[in-house]
Amino acid sequence: MLDDTDRRILRQYQAAPETGLQDLADRCGMTATTLGRRLDRLRARGILRATRGVIDWQVLGYSVEVSLRVTLDKSVPRAFEDFVDAAREVPEVLEIQTLLGQVDVRLSVIARDLAHYQALYRDRILALPHMTDIEALMHVARLKGDETLPI
């Protein structure tokens, strides 16, 4: 699927995505034109999806992160869709994951502090539809948060 040149490009790009095209081409040992074509091809194949800004939410004053494991009422025909649609409307919900097993959905939620989390939980989270069970897991430390792939 990937040749050695593609893997080299992706390794360099992951290491420093803010690098300009010419500098990245130099690191990869090719011209900027060749690199541009290769990047376009990786994007067209869906391998390289986007360039994005990553914002450190802790620097912006959010100090609490909680994982919520939610079980939904499976007797309701659109329980999953209704729940996810409502959860997407809560700005503090950073991530929604679906799971197989006893737990149906995991939400990653941030808050400024415990008082903010408590209000958010009481006013927004508990108001989400079709929940039969919810378990909160307070994050203590992120020991690894790297999205870099071993290419």
Results as ranks from 00 to 15, higher is better:
residue 69 R to F: 11
residue 11 R to Q: 13
residue 50 A to C: 06
residue 111 A to F: 02
residue 69 R to E: 05
residue 85 D to F: 08
residue 10 L to D: 06
residue 72 L to H: 05
residue 148 T to L: 09
residue 80 F to I: 09
residue 75 S to K: 13
residue 123 D to S: 05
residue 36 G to L: 06
residue 61 G to S: 10
residue 6 D to S: 15
residue 150 P to S: 14
residue 102 Q to W: 02
residue 51 T to C: 01
residue 83 F to P: 14
residue 6 D to V: 03
residue 56 D to S: 13
residue 106 R to L: 12
residue 99 L to M: 09
residue 49 R to Y: 01
residue 73 D to K: 07
residue 39 L to R: 11
residue 119 A to D: 15
residue 134 I to P: 00
residue 26 D to V: 09
residue 150 P to I: 03
residue 122 R to I: 04
residue 107 L to C: 03
residue 139 H to S: 06
residue 81 E to N: 14
residue 16 A to Q: 14
residue 103 V to T: 08
residue 12 Q to I: 12
residue 86 A to C: 08
residue 62 Y to M: 05
residue 44 A to E: 12
residue 81 E to P: 00
residue 94 L to Y: 12
residue 83 F to Q: 10
residue 51 T to Q: 12
residue 70 V to M: 05
residue 117 Y to K: 04
residue 71 T to H: 00
residue 35 L to N: 12
residue 109 V to M: 10
residue 106 R to N: 05
residue 34 T to H: 09
residue 83 F to W: 04
residue 64 V to Y: 08
residue 53 G to M: 12
residue 129 P to Y: 01
residue 148 T to K: 07
residue 32 A to Q: 13
residue 111 A to T: 11
residue 132 T to E: 05
residue 17 P to D: 08
residue 46 G to S: 07
residue 75 S to A: 12
residue 43 R to D: 02
residue 144 K to F: 12
residue 121 Y to G: 00
residue 28 C to D: 08
residue 11 R to N: 08
residue 30 M to T: 07
residue 70 V to P: 03
residue 92 E to C: 07
residue 76 V to L: 09
residue 108 S to A: 06
residue 133 D to I: 00
residue 127 A to H: 01
residue 85 D to A: 15
residue 34 T to P: 01
residue 33 T to R: 13
residue 112 R to F: 05
residue 130 H to S: 01
residue 47 I to R: 10
residue 83 F to T: 11
residue 137 L to M: 04
residue 93 V to K: 02
residue 66 V to K: 02
residue 66 V to E: 07
residue 110 I to F: 10
residue 116 H to F: 10
residue 85 D to E: 15
residue 151 I to L: 15
residue 133 D to N: 09
residue 129 P to R: 00
residue 5 T to E: 08
residue 66 V to Q: 02
residue 115 A to D: 15
residue 59 V to Y: 10
residue 100 L to W: 00
residue 125 I to K: 03
residue 6 D to K: 15
residue 25 A to I: 04
residue 35 L to M: 07
residue 130 H to V: 01
residue 115 A to F: 04
residue 28 C to S: 07
residue 23 D to P: 03
residue 41 R to W: 10
residue 101 G to H: 03
residue 26 D to G: 08
residue 60 L to K: 15
residue 98 T to S: 11
residue 92 E to D: 15
residue 144 K to M: 07
residue 125 I to D: 00
residue 44 A to Q: 07
residue 144 K to C: 13
residue 30 M to I: 05
residue 82 D to M: 11
residue 146 D to I: 07
residue 141 A to P: 00
residue 78 R to P: 09
residue 47 I to D: 06
residue 3 D to G: 11
residue 149 L to H: 07
residue 90 V to F: 08
residue 4 D to G: 11
residue 12 Q to P: 03
residue 19 T to H: 12
residue 46 G to W: 14
residue 80 F to W: 08
residue 20 G to M: 03
residue 91 P to L: 06
residue 44 A to D: 11
residue 69 R to L: 14
residue 23 D to A: 14
residue 21 L to V: 12
residue 14 Q to R: 01
residue 58 Q to V: 09
residue 28 C to A: 07
residue 82 D to L: 13
residue 1 M to Y: 09
residue 72 L to K: 02
residue 18 E to Q: 13
residue 85 D to K: 15
residue 70 V to C: 02
residue 106 R to P: 00
residue 118 Q to W: 04
residue 2 L to E: 06
residue 42 L to Y: 14
residue 17 P to Q: 09
residue 22 Q to I: 13
residue 52 R to S: 09
residue 32 A to Y: 04
residue 110 I to A: 06
residue 77 P to S: 11
residue 30 M to S: 02
residue 53 G to T: 14
residue 141 A to F: 00
residue 94 L to A: 02
residue 55 I to N: 11
